[in-house]
């Protein structure tokens, strides 16, 4: 029914930064296929005239005054860091480039 293939699952794993094993890819492909077949029914009633609801309780213009607060100390910032150096988080080499 749905278009879930192992290749698609692999691609989704890349997008989601999860290193899926082949066994996981296979299992997820089958499971997602069933799930997607079940949930695709939303499109039956989602006609163009129906507006989408993003927030259950509609509010707007909720702003914060431009006043400094909630700042963490550098110790708090780094308190759970897996690795750090010079007051900054340390990560292994990055391939690619800044966005």
């Amino acid at each position: 029914m749905s278009e879930i293939t192992p290749d698609l699952v692999r691609h989704l794993g890349v997008l989601a930064r999860i290193q899926l094993s082949e066994e996981e890819v296979e299992r997820l492909t089958g499971q997602l296929d069933v799930i997607v077949d079940n949930i695709a029914k939303v499109s039956e009633v989602a006609t163009p005239d129906v507006v989408a609801t993003s927030h259950p309780i509609p509010l707007q213009n909720v702003f914060r005054p431009d006043v400094v607060g909630d700042q963490l100390t550098p110790e708090q910032v780094l308190q759970n860091a897996p690795d750090s150096a010079d007051g900054r988080f340390r990560v292994t080499a990055i391939l690619g480039e800044e966005q």
């Binding site: 879930i4 698609l8 699952v9 989704l12 794993g13 997008l15 989601a16 999860i18 899926l20 996981e24 997820l28 499971q31 997602l32 799930i35 997607v36 949930i39 695709a40 939303v42 499109s43 009633v45 989602a46 006609t47 129906v50 507006v51 989408a52 609801t53 993003s54 259950p56």
Partner: peptide, 30 residues
């Protein structure tokens, strides 16, 4: 968790948004 992340990534990805996430938000209205 992995199952739902992969499912959610799918529902939002290019080409599927309207059919899935967008439609689900409409069901919410209904």
């Amino acid at each position: 968790v992995k199952r739902r992340i992969i499912l959610g990534t799918y529902a939002l990805s290019a080409g599927y948004y309207d059919a899935y996430y967008g439609s689900a938000q409409k069901v919410r209205t209904l």
